[in-house]
């Protein structure tokens, strides 16, 4: 029983970080209908940013998100303005390939300047734990889960209660209608990509004290983010939150009860099952 509870707990905690990556991807998709294959690379850039701030300025990774959130927002907005915006009306396939190419460029640029060495952040609390009713909880993971929850709550408030947030949601629902209603659709796209990138970067920052950093790390997150987003329903923020936690727990349980090498297999099988039987995802509106 303790093994089961421990693995569910680990799954939920890591799932929170996955959710953050997924939410970013789902917002971008919702507003622009572009699947961002370079999303994991944005997570990677967030990680390197955290690493630079930590080693260069000695700022704690959890504090550094105050710097990396605006920085990543700017990176996202720049990518949207210079690249994505030009293919918004093009074939969806070309959009996919553009982001694939962008991903290659980002990861290899980073490799050129930082080499492919593994970087590992060692903070005073990197391997410390909290004890909770016989279960052990990694301190940095618990902190990052708390921050993730706070950011997600903030994001909900922003999307539901503010005018800009409602504008983004309206654009996601129907781009043309939103434009007719006088919403600046271009600005919303810029905002959406910026927010998506900022969330990916934050996830990178939050996971870096318990993980390691190398230029190709993005691929892991890109694939996971797809699964999460499809699972929750493309464009659904609540769905992505739920999807992240489901994937975290599935991986964790599969690793304990079947085999660690097979855990991804279960994630992809789950992904296919959802795609086939509920293509709109668990919480998505049917649009396929």
């Amino acid at each position: 029983m303790i093994v089961f509870l421990q693995s569910v707990l680990s799954g939920v905690l890591i799932g929170g970080v996955y959710a953050l990556v997924g939410i970013g991807l789902t917002i971008i998709f919702g507003v622009m209908r572009v699947i961002n294959f370079a999303h994991g690379e944005l997570v990677m850039i967030g990680m390197y940013l955290t690493w630079i701030i930590f080693t260069g300025l000695a700022i704690d990774p959890f504090v550094s998100i105050l710097i990396s959130i605006p920085a990543m927002f700017a990176v996202g907005a720049l990518i949207q303005k210079t690249l994505i915006n030009r293919v918004l009306g093009a074939l969806p396939e070309n959009q996919i390939l553009l982001t694939v190419g962008l991903g290659l460029v980002l990861s290899n640029l980073v490799m050129l300047f930082f080499t492919s060495d593994y970087r590992i952040l060692t903070t005073s609390y990197s391997s410390s734990t909290l004890r909770l009713a016989g279960l052990s909880v990694s301190t940095p993971l618990a902190i990052s889960f708390a921050i993730t929850s706070a950011i997600t709550a903030l994001l909900y408030w922003f999307l539901l209660k503010t005018d800009t947030g409602q504008g983004i949601r309206a654009t996601a629902q129907d781009r043309d209608a939103a434009q007719l209603m006088g919403i600046n659709v271009k600005r919303m796209s810029l905002l959406a990509f910026g927010i998506g990138a900022a969330l990916a970067g934050t996830a990178g920052a939050l996971i870096s004290p318990t993980y390691y950093i190398f230029p190709q790390v993005g691929g892991v997150f890109t694939l996971k983010a797809f699964v999460i987003v499809v699972l929750g329903g493309m464009g659904s923020v609540l769905g992505a939150t739920l999807g992240g936690v489901i994937i975290g727990v599935t991986e964790s349980l599969a690793a304990v009860y079947i085999s660690a090498g097979m855990k991804e297999l279960f994630v992809y099988v789950l992904f296919l099952i959802v795609l086939l039987f509920r293509p709109a995802g668990l919480l998505g509106r049917s649009r396929v």
Partner: peptide
């Protein structure tokens, strides 16, 4: 006998087992 794929952020489940 536990093999894992390189790059997973979480080995806690395997270690619990």
């Amino acid at each position: 006998d536990e093999s894992y794929s390189k790059g997973s952020p979480d080995y806690r489940s395997t270690l619990t087992k």
